[in-house]
């Protein structure tokens, strides 16, 4: 195999992993605190992508400039959804949260279909097709930007959880929710805040993905299973795990695609996931 192709494939794989990390960090936070798999994650990403799309098309706001706005909007959406629906309807049962988020994803996806119709929307911004030479690879600028942003996002979340009062409360609830309640932490509120933050990450992810990708009502499916895989692989609730997991999955997908072909190559993700779990049954960075 040509060394330049191999080198370029490694770079492409890492960049791909970066875009997965954007989606996976929020999911791992939600899992770490609430101990549930948020089935609505993909459809919330889809909503955020439509948000970024319409901000660009209707209000001429560049996707990158729209990040603060989308993060705030998605935080609010997540917080309200948890408070008004998920928390109230789950009766404290984890399986029920799973079902409610599943129901929610069906509703959201079809609301999008109802209002926006089913076709894929692609956008072009001035930098969409700008290419950057990165060693042997020629990569589109938006992908490089989203890779760097995913590192920043993971670091920011890690800092927030470690250093702020809310972060400490989130950690306390994640570790021992009954104990946290006893020391006077409003556990339900922390759940809602955590869910909100997890969804807010999707606001940033959407703005970073849209310049080089497309949006359609079912676009969430593309990322959601991969994101589940990454969260479990990295160790549920671990940001560094989500980041490392994303990069491993991105690299695996890229390299197995190169060696096995793009179709059979998809099996690389499943196999590496199975293998790693057999040796680290609670993920790479489990506590």
């Amino acid at each position: 195999m040509d060394a330049t192709i191999l080198g370029a494939a490694v770079i492409n794989g890492l960049l791909l992993g970066g875009s997965y990390a954007l989606v996976a960090v929020g999911l791992t936070l939600i899992y770490g605190v609430l101990h549930i798999i948020n089935f609505a994650h993909g459809s919330m990403l889809m909503l955020a992508m439509y948000g970024a799309y319409f901000l660009l098309m209707k209000a001429k706001i560049d996707p990158y400039a729209a990040i603060p706005l989308m993060v705030a909007a998605m935080f609010a959406a997540g917080y309200v959804l948890y408070r008004g629906l998920i928390g109230r309807f789950s009766h404290g049962k984890d399986e029920n949260i799973l079902l409610i988020t599943l129901g929610l994803s069906i509703v959201l996806e079809n609301v999008a279909l109802f209002f926006f119709k089913g076709d894929s929307q692609t956008v072009t911004v001035s930098y969409s097709d700008r290419m950057v030479a990165l060693g042997p690879a020629l990569v589109p600028l938006p992908k490089l930007v989203s890779f760097v942003a995913s590192l920043v996002l993971c670091a920011a979340l890690a800092w927030f959880i470690a250093r702020t009062d809310t972060g400490r409360a989130i950690r306390a609830v994640a570790k021992e929710r009954h104990g946290a309640r006893l020391v006077g932490i409003d556990v339900e509120k922390i759940f809602a805040v955590s869910y909100g933050i997890g969804i807010a990450c999707l606001g940033a992810a959407a703005c970073l993905l849209i310049p080089s990708f497309y949006v359609s009502p079912s676009v969430g499916h593309l990322f959601v299973i991969v994101a589940f895989t990454i969260v479990v692989l990295g160790g549920m609730g671990s940001f560094i795990g989500a980041l490392v997991g994303s990069l491993i999955i991105g690299l695996t997908e890229s390299l197995s695609g190169l060696f096995l072909g793009e179709a059979l190559g998809q099996i690389g993700i499943s196999l590496i996931f199975i293998l790693i779990l057999l040796f680290r049954p609670t993920g790479i960075f489990s506590k």
Partner: peptide
Amino acid sequence: KHANPTRDFAN
């Protein structure tokens, strides 16, 4: 041959 969906065609 490629999968449906494929997220990235760089390689």
